[in-house]
């Protein structure tokens, strides 16, 4: 009772403190201030020629941005495609490659993780293939598949597999021994232990692996598409050929925004499977 009586008092003192003392308000204020200063510096710098020739002003870039987001879907051939279409093309490639990679990496990770022998046997492959730059696979993909679309998906597949595989393996191999002891003392079968104990226990690790993989897939697709035909990466490359710097900046901003959105989706999913655990 004492606690519930005390609570409103505490709440009141917190309400009494001035709005500008609140941490979130302060942070937002600092964010807006720095953004404003940055845009001002950009605008004034571009107008008075502090940078090299051709750098667009901030207002010019924002106008371009507004035009692209209000006209996302038009199609005047591959070199004049609305940014919405390009975004959807990129997302589609990422989705196919990433889902295929996850469908391989998660079950494979579980299989490797539950067997210490398999863990030791397959770890060298993983460690060797993990640090390879995704773009190093590009020529090989083009040669093997002879198709730019399939090659793009192949690169996403091969580069977004490793974080999921490694995290799944780690999570499965390091399930709290107490949980396994519980299943053991109850006489649970191996299959039941895997389905009901090991996989749920490893789920936070699996999801954070999927999250890292998604980040990598989104990084890779832009780079890969510069060498392929369509998509956001190609959009940037095309605008570079047109020497349209504002459009490049717009595309960069949109890529960042979509990446942020995808990441927060997985952050929310991580919270869903955590159940008080912090991993």
């Amino acid at each position: 009772m004492a606690l519930s009586n005390a609570a409103p008092v505490v709440g009141k003192t917190e309400n009494q403190e001035a709005l500008w003392q609140n941490e979130s308000v302060k942070a937002f204020g600092l964010f807006m201030l720095s953004l404003g200063l940055f845009l001002l510096f950009w605008e004034v710098g571009a107008r008075s020629g502090w940078f090299i020739r051709g750098v667009p002003t901030a207002t010019e870039t924002l106008q371009e941005f507004w035009w692209w987001v209000t006209n996302p879907f038009f199609d005047n051939g591959p070199n004049d495609l609305g940014i919405g279409w390009n975004l959807l093309i990129s997302l589609r490639r990422v989705a196919i490659g990433y889902i295929a990679a996850s469908l391989v990496a998660v079950p494979l990770g579980i299989l490797i993780g539950i067997s210490p022998v398999a863990y030791k046997a397959f770890n060298p492959y993983v460690q060797l293939l993990k640090p390879i730059s995704p773009l190093a696979w590009l020529p090989l993909g083009l040669y093997l598949l002879r198709d730019s679309e399939k090659t793009g998906i192949f690169i996403i597949f091969i580069s977004s597999m490793w974080p999921t595989l490694i995290n799944t393996t780690f999570g499965v191999a390091n399930v709290d021994k107490d949980y396994l002891d519980v299943a053991n003392t109850l006489g649970a079968s191996r299959l039941r232990t895997i389905l009901k104990v090991i996989i749920p226990a490893a789920l936070p690790n699996i999801v954070s692996g999927l999250r890292i993989s998604m980040g990598i897939a989104w990084l890779v697709i832009v780079a890969a598409e510069m060498l392929l035909g369509t998509g956001l990466g190609y959009f940037i490359w095309n605008e570079w050929n047109n020497l349209s710097i504002p459009n490049i900046l717009v595309a960069i901003f949109i890529i960042g925004l979509v990446g942020l959105l995808l990441d927060s989706l997985f952050a929310a999913l991580e919270k869903c499977v955590a159940f008080g655990r912090n991993s």
């Binding site: 709290d176 107490d178 949980y179 002891d181 519980v182 053991n184 003392t185 109850l186 006489g187 104990v197 749920p200 226990a201 789920l203 499977v273 159940f275 008080g276 655990r277």
Partner: peptide, 19 residues
């Protein structure tokens, strides 16, 4: 080996957090 004729209570509870 382990069996259901013996029930075990663990020091760290060992409850499944997702259940």
């Amino acid at each position: 080996g382990p069996g259901s004729d013996r029930g075990m209570v663990f020091q760290n509870y060992a409850l499944m957090p997702w259940m």
